[in-house]
Design a protein around this nucleic acid. Structure first.
Lengths: 217, 217
DNA sequence: CCCAAATGTAATCAATGATTACATAAAGAG
DNA sequence: CTCTTTATGTAATCATTGATTACATTTGGG
């Protein structure tokens, strides 16, 4: 799947021409263009992606059956980056304290969402493609959720939690970070956008407030 | 073009003809059509709204300079209904207990959002129109926020809160309900959609969990 | 009564998602 | 190496949509 049989360029006609007939890896370039467009705040259109790839308007449809499929692929790529960042943060968090790990998860989540709002929107919104359409994305997301469930279960086992309603805590936690991230990209933090660090500090405060709320003391 | 219509029925011109040249109140009808379309899950297009109003595709632009303006007007209408419901709920809540009022606010918020997801999206998303474009909507929203701030301030004054970080609590509360509402309409509650009451019960549980988290005990 | 403003229609444009017929490059069989 | 097959890109085209412009009709004030 991943390894293309990198063939040796036997016919090197493309060097002489400014634009060879066959694009190197159009699929990847289109995905990157879509992510790029999204992060510029622009409408993501198939044609504009094709334009950026210097390719005809119909070419993308050789790689994606429709616009949604392109967006789903872009979402998959974004999700992969998101997950990488989460896991990196968890790798640095102390293995012993589930609540600290929970906190690290939430911080990494919000930090990525603050810094890549358009990518976060593509992943989360279900507006670009039907959410069930990408099995990979669904599975990937389910694994992240399972991670947090495990942390909460560990915390409960260690007697760190005030309430036994783990499901409720988990939903509330998800809603909290999701809501904060979406409020940011939906423009509900009007004046905070100016100073960059302010919003991330607020995110940290909100997460700490939540953890303090669920922790036994 | 033989018989001229009757002399001067000031307000009742549309009764005789099947479709009079002038629509009764096209502006209102277009707004309703837009809301109707949204709640059907369809794409809201100016043309479709015009189609539903049995009017030419260009007619809406006599009432709204562009699509965004129509959506902003629809959002204004939706927000009015939202606020009406919130205030009705607050009117029934006990005046003395700020935390109970806070809870009633959250419940009414989520209940409305669960039952009118498309309307909630139009209000919140900033995707149909620039959020600052409708001063009325901005002011209206600010007043609702001020309401919750007042409740929290009252609660703090009565010594009901565990933390003194009112701003943090307020943002967290907003993020919580906003996130829950958006998770619902973004399709993050996959299997819950089937049974109607389940999701509202979960909403209540989440709100209670939050209130328990911020309350002194 | 008449005219000006408001409001609707018809025609038209540019952009977009999508499809189809055709062109060209790449890969493999012989 | 040559020939065929398949993957991939182009060109042309279509329907839909937001938007604009010229024109038509109604309404209401002077």
């Amino acid at each position: 799947m991943s390894a293309r049989p990198t063939s040796k360029p036997r016919a090197r006609r493309q060097i002489s021409e400014a634009r060879p007939y066959h694009h190197g890896d159009l699929r990847r370039v289109l995905i990157d263009a879509a992510l790029q467009l999204a992060s510029e705040g622009a409408e993501v259109s198939v044609r504009e992606a094709a334009r950026r790839a210097a390719v005809s308007p119909g070419a993308p449809f050789r790689h994606f059956p429709n616009r949604d499929a392109l967006m789903a692929a872009a979402a998959g790529e974004a999700q992969r980056r998101f997950r990488t960042e989460i896991e990196a943060a968890l790798a640095e968090a102390p293995a012993a304290d589930p609540l600290l790990r929970f906190r690290a998860f939430g911080l990494a989540y919000l930090r990525w969402a603050m810094r890549n709002p358009a990518h976060f929107e593509i992943i989360s919104t279900g507006r670009y493609f039907a959410h069930g359409s990408s099995a990979e994305l669904t599975r990937d997301n389910a694994e992240l959720i399972a991670l947090t469930e495990q942390m909460l279960a560990d915390a409960a086992a260690q007697g760190l939690l005030r309430s036994a309603d783990l499901k409720g805590i988990q939903i509330a936690g998800r809603a909290l970070v999701y809501g904060f991230a979406r409020m940011n990209l939906d423009g509900h933090f009007p004046r905070w956008g100016v100073e960059e660090g302010e919003i991330e500090r607020m995110a940290e405060a909100v997460i700490d407030l939540f953890i303090a709320g669920i922790a036994k003391r």
